[in-house]
Simulated assay, not measured.
Amino acid sequence: MNTVKCFIIDDQEPACQLIAEYISKIPQLELVGICHEPMEALAIVQQKQIDLLFLDINMPVLNGIQFLKTLKNPPNTIFTTAYSEYALQAFDLKVIDYLVKPIPFDRFVTAVNRVFDLKISIPADPIPIENEFPEAQFTDFSFFKTNQNKLEKINFNEVIFIESHGEYARFHTNKKISVSRVSLNRLEEIFPKGNFFRVHRSFIINIDKIDAIDGSLIEIDSYKIPISKSRRDDLNKLILHNDL
């Protein structure tokens, strides 16, 4: 595959150097530039071919969230920040991931792998198999069409969370990440209620996999997932009901 062209925007030089070092360790990534000033970076990002943007949030004049909103066709973006409280706003912008500093290398690799997942070739009409065979009633698993038109079995108890990205859904399981073209609305109907809960318009989580809840963020596996204000009370009630 072609290398993923990366660009870093961060006003702190040590943070830039760390991300640059991480990029250099992954052969599929190519660093094409670093910029410390978001206003200066605006013109560069619009002119260069950039596949993946590593973007700080707390910067002078124009913060990372404001910066991303100014771009008409933003590249795949991973926020890198010392502040967890912006996660809800960040995921509303459909970013690839949200990394909280200090960023360990394994967490960086997990985020980058999500970019590679976006490049998987997916058929035009991957529909859950229940739609094709209504008589098949599965309680512990379902089949979804994934890349190369393959039907893949997804065991519900192995799913950590499901993430929406445009028309596609990513199933994060204990073993791997699978991608299918199916809406979260449809998945809410398929996955067992009581075990799975939609905490945000872009995320459904497996309640059994929650490690901790910190304000507006759920810690699950190595991820921090935002909770919408409108769903927070319902999640708390569900957790208390399940005696987690």
Score class of each variant (00 low, 15 high):
residue 181 R to V: 06
residue 219 E to G: 09
residue 133 F to A: 08
residue 219 E to H: 15
residue 209 K to W: 05
residue 196 F to V: 02
residue 206 N to L: 04
residue 196 F to Y: 11
residue 148 Q to C: 11
residue 121 S to A: 12
residue 112 V to L: 01
residue 158 E to A: 02
residue 130 E to T: 14
residue 169 A to H: 03
residue 148 Q to W: 01
residue 180 S to G: 13
residue 191 F to S: 03
residue 157 N to L: 09
residue 102 P to V: 15
residue 116 F to H: 09
residue 129 I to P: 06
residue 153 K to G: 09
residue 162 I to R: 01
residue 116 F to W: 05
residue 235 L to D: 07
residue 110 T to C: 07
residue 119 K to L: 11
residue 103 I to C: 09
residue 184 L to I: 01
residue 163 E to I: 03
residue 151 L to V: 04
residue 96 I to R: 04
residue 129 I to Q: 09
residue 224 K to F: 15
residue 139 T to L: 12
residue 216 S to W: 02
residue 213 I to N: 08
residue 168 Y to D: 14
residue 158 E to N: 13
residue 184 L to N: 01
residue 207 I to N: 02
residue 95 V to H: 01
residue 109 V to E: 11
residue 127 I to S: 05
residue 202 S to C: 10
residue 143 F to D: 03
residue 199 V to S: 02
residue 224 K to V: 09
residue 214 D to Y: 04
residue 167 E to N: 15
residue 128 P to E: 12
residue 142 S to K: 02
residue 199 V to H: 05
residue 102 P to E: 06
residue 157 N to K: 12
residue 95 V to Y: 04
residue 120 I to R: 14
residue 156 F to P: 03
residue 102 P to R: 10
residue 223 Y to V: 00
residue 174 N to D: 14
residue 99 L to V: 12
residue 192 P to A: 02
residue 107 R to M: 08
residue 234 D to G: 04
residue 187 L to I: 02
residue 229 K to D: 07
residue 112 V to Q: 03
residue 110 T to H: 11
residue 102 P to I: 13
residue 218 I to F: 02
residue 171 F to M: 08
residue 205 I to Y: 00
residue 218 I to M: 05
residue 134 P to S: 03
residue 206 N to P: 00
residue 97 D to P: 15
residue 165 H to F: 15
residue 114 R to K: 14
residue 117 D to W: 02
residue 194 G to S: 00
residue 228 S to W: 05
residue 138 F to Q: 06
residue 198 R to M: 04
residue 105 F to R: 03
residue 159 V to T: 15
residue 133 F to T: 07
residue 116 F to Q: 12
residue 219 E to T: 14
residue 225 I to T: 06
residue 143 F to A: 05
residue 223 Y to C: 05
residue 98 Y to A: 09
residue 214 D to E: 12
residue 104 P to F: 06
residue 148 Q to K: 11
residue 193 K to Q: 15
residue 234 D to I: 04
residue 115 V to K: 06
residue 109 V to P: 04
residue 149 N to V: 03
residue 202 S to I: 00
residue 119 K to R: 10
residue 95 V to E: 04
residue 205 I to M: 00
residue 168 Y to L: 07
residue 156 F to K: 01
residue 218 I to T: 06
residue 225 I to R: 01
residue 195 N to I: 07
residue 180 S to M: 06
residue 185 N to A: 10
residue 116 F to I: 09
residue 106 D to R: 05
residue 166 G to V: 07
residue 131 N to E: 14
residue 227 I to V: 15
residue 160 I to G: 06
residue 233 D to L: 07
residue 194 G to V: 00
residue 152 E to T: 15
residue 100 V to G: 07
residue 108 F to Y: 11
residue 182 V to C: 10
